[in-house]
């Protein structure tokens, strides 16, 4: 899938940023996205589950505006680890589907990139729920 779609492209041409800087930006950007989420919870009083929904939608909007790919190149895991990235891969898939096959292509494209994570989430979730019991 990819989280990786954003990692390629122009960034490679201009040369990857130094490893230290990548780590620094990953930490800062990932942290800032989560800090923004915390503000939504504490200041706007949006419940945690709703905040997760808002984050995915924010990722979709930023992708629509063409801003998320540059962020991914720049911040690496700082942009690919938060849930906003899920909005990115869904939108990215929809856009490439649109380009390939119009409206129907968009529908089949949406889950093309995100399918890996969804399938893994179902598998891991099922397995973990089978193996573990809630702590008492």
């Amino acid at each position: 899938m990819s989280f990786a779609e954003g990692g390629r492209g122009k960034g490679d041409r201009s040369g990857p940023p130094s490893r230290t800087m990548t780590y620094l930006w990953a930490f800062l950007v990932g942290g800032l996205i989560c800090a923004a989420g915390q503000l939504l919870i504490d200041v706007a009083h949006i419940p945690p589950a709703h905040t997760m929904v808002v984050m995915v939608c924010a990722g979709a909007v930023l992708t629509g505006l063409g801003l998320y790919e540059p962020l991914l190149r720049f911040a690496g895991a700082g942009a690919s680890v938060p849930l906003t990235n899920f909005g990115f891969v869904l939108t990215k898939g929809a856009l490439s589907g649109l380009a390939k096959g119009g409206w129907v292509g968009m529908l089949s494209g949406i889950l093309e990139l995100s399918g890996t994570v969804l399938a893994a989430a179902v598998l891991f979730g099922f397995a973990a729920a089978l193996v573990f019991r809630p702590r008492s």
């Binding site: 919870i41 419940p47 945690p48 589950a49 809630p134 702590r135």
Partner: peptide, 8 residues
């Protein structure tokens, strides 16, 4: 929420 969900 479920007790293992990490909500504050």
């Amino acid at each position: 929420y479920p007790v293992e969900f990490g909500a504050q």
